[in-house]
Simulated assay, not measured.
Amino acid sequence: MRKPKITIIGGGTGIPVILNSLRHEEADITAIVTVADDGGSSGALRNALQLTPPGDLRNVLVAMSDMPKFYEEIFQYRFEQSDGALAGHPLGNLIIAGISEMQGSTYNAMRILSKFFHVTGKIYPSSEKALTLHAIFQDGCEVVGESQIAKHKGMIDRVYVTNTYDQEIPKASRKVVEEIMESDMVVLGPGSLFTSILPNLVIPEIGEALCQTKAQVAYVCNIMTQYGETERFTDADHVRVLNRHLGERFIDTVLVNIEKVPKDYMDRNQFDEYLVQVEHDFAGLKKEVPKVVSANFLRLENGGAFHNGDSVTEELLNLIRVQQ
């Protein structure tokens, strides 16, 4: 039988959890990764070289590679804060940035690195140019830059992206639209709603492809609300925002975790951006999506609440089998 073709869209630390589990299954995997990060090492490198930020791509590359643990530790090594101009930069970010400059684009760099690290599947930046994320808040204030959004108090109404270094309309990377249109399933998230998932979807070509594709579109809802983004959000609120940004109910299935995070479990020093567990609104979800899958998708580790990649992957593959 033909391998199911699954495309994962997002960024941050969310989608690598799913990709790492999915690469062990019989599936044709594509990752489409946000390029709107303007903070930390990624922001510094993109400003210096005017290239797409490498951080989210680095994490996805590691998740989809069979590189030995020692190679991963080298690739993920972050220079000490006392290391001058290199302070805070992961070695992998420097490698991606260097090859991107050498090859003329991050798109080409990821093709080379995918072969070098024996990646299972394909990795594409959502755009071949760095993007700037804009957030319009309900109070009418506009905040520019992903790293600045959480600093503004208030509720976000909508987001959009612009090319950072020219006035052209943001465009999807080569192959991205084709991958979405040819997929059996497109998975959104998990990840920060406004800063990891939507920066990809509001690229016009990607949004249009998601509304037109015959693939089943699944959204993996976050477990925790996020400071400065989704405070007091229910699971239905997350889906409502996604549908509203694309102007139609394009999501077919939403996966929600129903396992409780133990009280006082979260390490607030390490995970200070996450607030409380996302509350459920199943009546609201039924108005937004045809199908809701609720199960125990929770993994507790090192004082944080994460998705269990194996459990999510198993459910996604079950959804594809039913569809076939």
Rank of each mutant, 00 (worst) to 15 (best):
G92C: 07
Y71L: 13
K115N: 13
F75G: 13
Q81W: 01
P68S: 15
Y124K: 06
I96W: 01
F137E: 05
A135Q: 14
L91G: 05
N93Q: 07
Q76T: 12
I99C: 03
E128H: 07
E73W: 03
R58F: 00
K122D: 12
G88M: 02
I123N: 09
T132V: 15
Y77V: 08
E128W: 01
L133S: 15
P54W: 05
G84F: 09
V62E: 07
R78F: 02
T120Q: 10
M110P: 07
P125C: 09
Y124N: 13
I96Q: 08
K115V: 06
S82L: 06
G98I: 04
G98P: 12
V62K: 11
K122Q: 09
V62R: 14
L57F: 00
G121T: 05
N108D: 14
P54D: 10
G55E: 06
R78K: 13
F116D: 02
A63Q: 01
F75C: 06
L113T: 06
E73G: 11
D66K: 05
P53T: 04
K122A: 10
Y71F: 11
V119Y: 00
D66M: 01
V60W: 00
L86H: 14
L113H: 08
K115F: 05
A97H: 03
G88V: 02
H89A: 13
P125A: 12
M102R: 10
D56S: 11
Q103C: 15
Y124T: 06
I74Q: 09
A63S: 07
L94F: 10
S65R: 14
E101H: 11
K69C: 08
A97D: 04
I123D: 07
N59D: 07
N59P: 03
F70Q: 09
L57A: 07
E72V: 00
I112H: 08
I99W: 00
V60F: 00
N108G: 14
I123A: 13
L94E: 14
I95K: 07
M64S: 11
L94C: 15
L133F: 07
E72F: 00
F70V: 14
P68V: 08
F79A: 13
Y71M: 10
K69S: 12
S65C: 08
